[in-house]
Design a protein around this nucleic acid. Structure first.
Lengths: 343, 343
DNA sequence: ATGAAAGCGCTAACAG
DNA sequence: CTGTTAGCGCTTTCAT
């Protein structure tokens, strides 16, 4: 079926292709009469201008890619899934397609996906911390990018321009979480986090420390576990904590998935949650509501991170200012996993 | 930064653009000498042919869209999320972008997204049952499509060609689930399903019936609930069942999410699961492993559905044969939500 | 206000 | 085997 073109519309309306183009793009330079005539034909023939020719002409793909580490695809990670949802929702307003892809590192070499190598994308949204070597590779290509949930401020320290980011304030989130434990009478509070992303570890640890210091609490070294990268490894972290002579009454986990793994371990070891040990997380992924006991956590507005990310990348693409943003990070969601032991 | 073109490569290599084009596309018609020379220049300059010009030339977008009802986006529905994952994984092999979009029905009118209206997609994968009016609208456009998890065989009965689909065999899944309950000594088995998608209801009910008949069991009318569309409504279905004078010892839910809602209701009403009432679902979404008790269910291989869907739509796009497929649907996953009451 | 013509980067038909 | 040329559908000068 031969798709109708602007030329044929012009012929039918008895005008030039230029006129039709002007009408489509609401430009000056055609008489009201012609405009109406052309509009009528477009309406009647159900004409849609061919996007591919505009792509070629403007050297623009109308694609925005989401680039994820292969370790944490939004399709495997509930946190990034929510961010993706926000981006997707917003993308429709701007007429861009969202394309999911990933970057891999193979013995020190950056493997970019075709869509980026071909510059078949107008902008890139990175999820999570992104290594400098990757960003350097991207910088060669002059494709605008932003980072959603970037933990590392050191990113791209070689360059003069720091990258634009949408972030949570994980120091504040950690502080809020631990403070809640303290308010509920806990004085022996363990910490499970990931040092895989150094700055995430640093930030959450700072918040943990600040809350402890404020209440003049001390900790056992074995309570500080930083080898969690997922549910299973968090389980192991918890097992180590439970081997301590002094056992904590509460555990602060820096993500909900860590908390889920740690709770599982505590239960498997015969502890009641929260009666014997309390747990608190960060993120408020939807799973938090389904486990038992329901997880008390700090809510990060992931949908908002997504919509903000979309706005930022659009600004960048269009050459406008795009300032880094931080979403609200002290929103405590009280459920069932923290026991008040003051009572 | 002016992107390098095929013309410039030609100039540098001292040949014609045609020669370069031939080399890029591995075509006959250039001497080995020229080929090597051109390859060297391409390598050295890091040249990537412009996809947009090919898009225009071939009238091909290299996009495949996933179209979902606005009621069940893969980003809200764990079942479709897995299918999307399979599609995405496979899409890289074929060099297509996957674009998520949706179709809405507004007082009887089909609202197609821009990407489809503009025919800016080479193929469409529909998720879940799709109304005839939608398919008719698509048929006008001559974009090839397939349906993943299509429940309705009546789809498009007006047309001479039935659409290509990837499906689960829900009758078999239901039969397998209910048979498992029967094997565990259950004789009073309730049913929670959705009549929102009529054929899904019909199929699962048939499987339920077949298993019951095989064991010569009878049911109370109030045990048959078909108004579930999500977790919350399944909760209500269960509440109705629990109002019966005769209470079932087991409940067969046609999706895991229904089971999750129903279990919640049973617990809230003071029943122990599975001690007082057993539950079984269909799907094996990842949540099934996180709730308590862990859900016994029938596993549908969603990832496989996704990869098959991708293969089918590619076949269709390339004009090859594409035959509907059914994935394995009798894979029982035994966890903790079914009690053996024979013992 | 209008239309002719050039050109975005590539491929394919054709001529040499 | 090689290069010239036309053209995919659109936008944008630039004459008229």
């Amino acid at each position: 079926m031969p798709k109708i073109t602007i030329k044929e519309i012009a012929k039918i309306a008895g005008v030039s292709p230029t006129a039709v183009s002007f009408v489509i793009n609401n430009k000056e330079g055609v008489s009201e009469e012609t405009r109406l005539k052309v509009k009528e034909v477009i309406e009647r023939t159900n004409f849609q201008p061919n996007l591919n020719s505009r792509r070629l002409l403007f050297n623009k793909s109308f694609n925005i890619s989401i680039v994820i580490r292969n370790t944490s695809s939004p399709f495997d990670d509930l946190f990034y899934l929510e961010i993706a949802k926000g981006l997707l929702k917003k993308s429709k307003e701007y007429g861009y397609n969202i394309v999911f892809t990933d970057v891999t590192l193979e013995n020190g070499n950056v493997l970019l996906p075709d869509i980026i190598k071909n510059e078949d994308t107008d902008g890139i949204v990175f999820f999570q911390d992104t290594e400098d070597i990757v960003l350097n590779e991207i910088n060669k290509l002059t494709i605008p990018f932003i980072i959603a949930d970037a933990h590392t401020d050191s990113v791209n320290k070689g360059s003069n321009l720091p990258p634009t980011t949408v972030n949570a304030d994980y120091e504040l989130a950690a502080f809020t979480a631990v403070s809640h434990l303290i308010e509920n009478g806990h004085r022996d509070i363990a910490y499970i986090s990931s040092s895989y992303v150094p700055n995430f570890y640093l930030k959450t640890f700072e918040g943990y420390k600040r809350a402890l210091e404020g209440a003049q609490l001390s900790v056992q070294p074995s309570w500080i576990q930083s080898n969690a990268i997922n549910e299973a490894s968090a389980y192991n972290c918890m097992a180590t904590i439970l081997k301590s002579n002094l056992k904590p009454t509460a555990v602060f986990c820096t993500t909900d998935m860590f908390a889920i793994g740690a709770i599982k371990c505590a239960k498997d070891s015969g502890f009641k949650v929260p009666d014997d040990i309390s747990f608190i997380g960060i993120d408020d992924i939807f799973l938090a509501n389904y486990i038992s006991p329901k997880l008390t956590t700090i809510r990060i507005d992931k949908l908002k991170m997504g919509t903000l990310a979309m706005e930022l990348i659009i600004n960048k693409i269009e050459g406008n200012e795009a300032n880094s943003m931080v979403v609200e990070s002290d929103n405590l969601v009280i459920r069932e996993s923290v026991k008040n032991i003051k009572l």
